[in-house]
Amino acid sequence: MPERLTDDQLERELVELGRRLDVPAPPQVATAVRRRIESQTEAGGPLPIPTGRPGPSQSRAWWLSPRLLQSAAALLLIFVALFALSPQVRAAVRDVLQFAGIELHEESAPVRPSPTSLPSLPGERTVTLAEAQAQADFTIRVPAELGTPDEVRVADGEPPRVVSLIYHAGPGRPAADSSGVAIRIDEFAGSVTPVYEKYGVQVEKVLIDGSLGIWVPRPHTLMYIDRSGTFRQEAARMSAQTLIWQVGATTLRMEGDFSKEEAIGIARSTLS
C-alpha cells in the first residue's frame, strides 16, 4: 500500500533510523589529547624561523603570553602535527606551519603551476568594494595608506570565500607584475582549515604595531584550497613576496614587489 509520507513523518523516521545506525563505541581521547597539547608547547614551538637567536627561548605555551592575548583575535600560529595533501607532504610534517588559514611549507610544491593559463581563483569576478563588503561575511580591511583599491574581486561561492583588493601600478607603488597589478591583497576569514598553501618558503616573524605577522621574502608557489578541501589546479601560481597578518577575524595576504618595511607600513594602516 503506497503511502505518501508527510515531511514530519519522514523526518521522524529518519531520526529513528539514525539512532539505529551502526556506530562503534566512542573512544576515550581526553588523555591523549591533553598529552599532545602539552607536548607541542613544551617543544618550544615548532617555528622554523631563522631569527638568528641561539635557540628557542619561548616558555611553555608561549603563544598564551599576556602580550599576545591582548588583541582579542591575536594572530595565532597554529602548529599542525598532521595536515597533508599527499604522503610526501605528510612526511615533511615538521616543516608545516599553519597560520590563520595559510599553510607554509619549506619543501617545494607537489604541483607545478601551469605557465600557459591565466591563474585565477574559482568563480572569480569583479565587483565594487561596497558589493564585496555586502556579500562577504567577514570584514574587509582597506589599508589607509593605499586608499580605495583600483579593482575588487570576489571568489569561490556565495558568500565569497576570498575578497581580493587589486592596486595597479602608480607613483609610490611597487613595480607591477605582467598583468599590471602592483599590490594584491587577498582577504578571507581566518580559520583552522587552510585557504591557501604556500610552498618553498622561508619565513620571518615580524611585528606590526605589536601584532604578529609573517613575512615571506622570496617568490614562492601559492596554491588555493576550496571549501571542500580540494586543490584548485587552475589557481596555482608563483607569488611574489608576501606579508600575512590578521585584523580581527580577517586574514590578509598581501603580495607585491615591496620591501618588508614598506609592507609593514601598509599593514599598519589597517590596524587603527
Binding site: P24, P26, P27, V29, A32, V33, R36, I37, Q40, W63, L68, L69, A73, A74, L76, I78, F79, V80, A81, L82, A100, G190, S191, V192, Q246, A249
Partner: peptide, 21 residues
C-alpha cells in the same frame, strides 16, 4: 581512522581557540 580524526580535531580546536569567537 575515526579515533585519530577525533584526537586531531580536538588538538586543532584547542590551537584555534584564540581566533574562536
Amino acid at each position: 581512522d575515526a579515533e585519530d580524526v577525533v584526537q586531531e580535531a580536538f588538538v586543532k580546536a584547542f590551537n584555534g581557540l584564540p581566533s574562536f569567537r
